[in-house]
Design a protein around this nucleic acid. Sequence first.
RNA 1: GCCACCGUAGCUCAGUGGUAGAGCAGCUGUUUCGUAAACAGCAGGUCACCCGUUCAAAUCGGGUCGGUGGCUCCA
Length: 583
Amino acid sequence: MPADSPSHINPSDLAAYRHRLRHSVSHVMASAVVELFPEAKLAIGPPTEDGFYYDFLVSRPFSPEDLQAIEERMRRDIAVSIPFQRKELSRVEAEGQFAAQPFKLELIAGIPADEPISTYRHGIFEDLCEGPHVESTADIKAFKLLSVAGAYWRGDEKRPMLQRIYGTAFESQDALDEHLHRLEEAQRRDHRVLGRELGLFFFDPLAPASPFFMPKGALVYNLLVEYMRSLYKRYGYQEVITPQIFGTDLWKRSGHYDNYIDNMYLINAEEREYGVKPMNCPAHCLMYMNQRHSYRELPIRYADFGRLHRFERSGVTHGLTRVRSFSQDDAHIFCRMEQVNQEIADVLAMTRESFSACGLGEPRFTLSMRPEKRLGTDEMWDRAEAALRDALLASGYSFTEVPGEGAFYGPKIDMFAKDAIGREWQLSTIQLDINLPERFDLEYVAEDGSFQRPVIVHRAVLGSIERFLGVLIEHHAGAFPVWLAPVQAVVIPIADRHIEYASQVAARLESEGVRVSMDATNERMNAKVRNAQLQKIPYMLIVGDREAANSSVSVRLRSGENPGSMPLDKAVARIKEAIASRS
RNA sequence: GCCACCGUAGCUCAGUGGUAGAGCAGCUGUUUCGUAAACAGCAGGUCACCCGUUCAAAUCGGGUCGGUGGCUCCA
């Protein structure tokens, strides 16, 4: 038995082992494909975070039946022990061996002269490969082919579309089953399904990729907006309202006409061209320009929940997370460069506060640094990057610096939140901008009476409210924190004779500011409980003869937990406490 | 936009050339019940849309729209 066989792998090496294992399975798969489709041209087949894939150029796309046949062929290979053998060869040998494989030839051409060219062979199948692999096909204990998808060669949409087969493999059947279970779990949390089941939102083909928020969805949406407004008050933001549609001269001046036109909706009226705003920044620049500003006024923080429209190519939209019509908790901070550090620090504090209120964990940040092509002097970039870095360091958040990934107009911070099942979502973004102030010739009057150029910090904490809501739904599997739940409590009378008392209970809760409903339908109590569970209502207050007699309610939580009967006053206090603590 | 797949009742889905189905939801009635589905009846569809093949199309072919999974994109 090989030293690193699964039965005694050190957990810290597990990731490396899986990497090797999946890479090996992708070879076994390629071998099966070549056997079944001799004309197939092989591209690449790397392991990924959760599995592996291999890209092929074939005369016809793979069908689900093909996948099954490939999988069966693979099982024959792993039923016996076929060793993986490494071989090094010269460039000339490699080119000769892969003469019929154009993609491999391209890969060979890309290998630097001083690096070895190696192949791995198992059985009669030999593939250009750096390795490493497991010892033999017998080490493959558990794998599954998952799906077929189109993928461009080298990720370039101008190059051929290949057929990609995705699969995954684990060191044991148990681990594979657990992974497949996680995939099902993700499906169970799909916000598009929950959105319909919970009556939050829907889509209609007449407005593709544009959500309709139903009363409950709009309620949650507005709760998020109201929450941000409450933070704005504390953090010194001023909310503004700006137009939806602007003459294209504005977009020419802002640079959107040259750089973003493909994503904009254009309108012609009275021989003039207009563009629907995809972003708020140019409007905020106009607002800033409308008055002369003193250094004493800075920073000026304009917040705007304005609706934005971006034309997204069909095929890229997805539920609430990628839409064509949305709004952000957007703001633009006009300030002096030396104020940037403090502003970023405040935005990060706001991020921490709001994420915790929404039940999300500690996010991870990236700091994108100056790119090759950029505006401004090195000195400005030094100061800008230092300001962002210092603020991140002071925040205590973990972050990684990404060289060259900044925007041409300034460095930026992106935030990634992890949801309950470990997926990361990009939400907040903070971008420093030295370009727009230039384009709009923004200025303020300094202490000495001279005119100086401010910088702009673009920032959104939740990001798009739509997207944030979608992530929240998946994170909580629809069971919102109590303060965000559209219905916080439902009163369930056991029989019709309890409706009167139930109404009193509901009225009391309502007067205490709790969003409450009463289920007076002609159903058995069990069915009412079930419906409330399915709606993920945090508190079920069941009332029957006993409760009516002594002014109490029997409390059931959506977790299934059953605290039982308690005086109404106590239940009210408990619910109000949960709301106030945003737990 | 590209590749593949999909579109039948509000939802989930069956129906492969010959009279459009089920469960849930809805409505009506009966039942008045103690922590996740009472019972019965009724109603509900231009089978996404357009064009074609056929004596006959939900079913076969072409196109359009929309969706799903990927790829590319997301200054």
